[in-house]
Design a protein around this nucleic acid. Structure first.
Lengths: 104, 104
DNA sequence: AGCATGCATTCCTTGACAGGCATATGACCA
DNA sequence: TGGTCATATGCCTGTCAAGGAATGCATGCT
């Protein structure tokens, strides 16, 4: 329960693929993800566990299936770290816009 | 030269600390970073190499010093991946705003 | 009860770093 | 030229995570 680092979780390309797949579909079962991604079932389950423990996905049980869906909160944390860097180029773009506005 | 994954680079907490330090100072030498971060010089140099090869920082030579500064382009790539997820909550916020507007 | 389905977990092996330490490189100076 | 400063690199070791194969564990069905 050691609160895994969100960036470390996203460092795995396979996990980002899982998230990208989930993003396009509201929610999906493990089997659907296995089919869509072409990965082994244990591989998908293990990545889903990492994502779940980091809060990126939530899970509900439907009969023998586990249905996963995205939770945005960890993404907000990542976005929070990224925000000051984003300002480094949006500020420049804003300045450029103001400059172009003055040109007219 | 194997085009390292930007997320994998950011997965290291120490590297994020280096970036956060650089962000507050335009540019800094390796020695300054060593002092500010309290890390060994080889450790800092090795992380800077990773950051440099991934494009997160650029480097200029000033006498015996190497002066590092941030380059925003890899951050833009990361932000690009994050953008659709960000819409998942900004859309909700926008909808909430519209709702509150109608309340008035 | 017995069996199949859907998923999670374990064990094992392998590969990728991270940090410490020592050393190399390159620029400056006397 | 010899020495020093600033930084980069190499080697070594420990740690940790990923994937494959096999197995465990529920739930549902007949």
């Amino acid at each position: 329960m050691v609160s895994v680092d969100a960036f470390a979780v996203l460092a795995e390309p396979t996990r980002r693929r899982i998230l990208d797949t989930l993003r396009g579909a509201e929610e999906q079962s493990v089997g659907e993800l296995v089919d869509l991604l072409g990965l082994s079932q244990p591989t998908v389950s293990k990545h889903l566990r990492v994502l779940r423990e980091a809060g990126f996905v939530t899970c509900r049980t439907a009969a023998q299936q586990r249905i996963y869906r995205i939770d945005v909160r960890p993404f907000q944390a990542v976005d929070g770290w990224l925000a000051p860097y984003r300002r480094m180029w949006t500020d420049h773009l804003d300045a450029l816009e103001r400059h172009l506005d003055r040109q007219e």
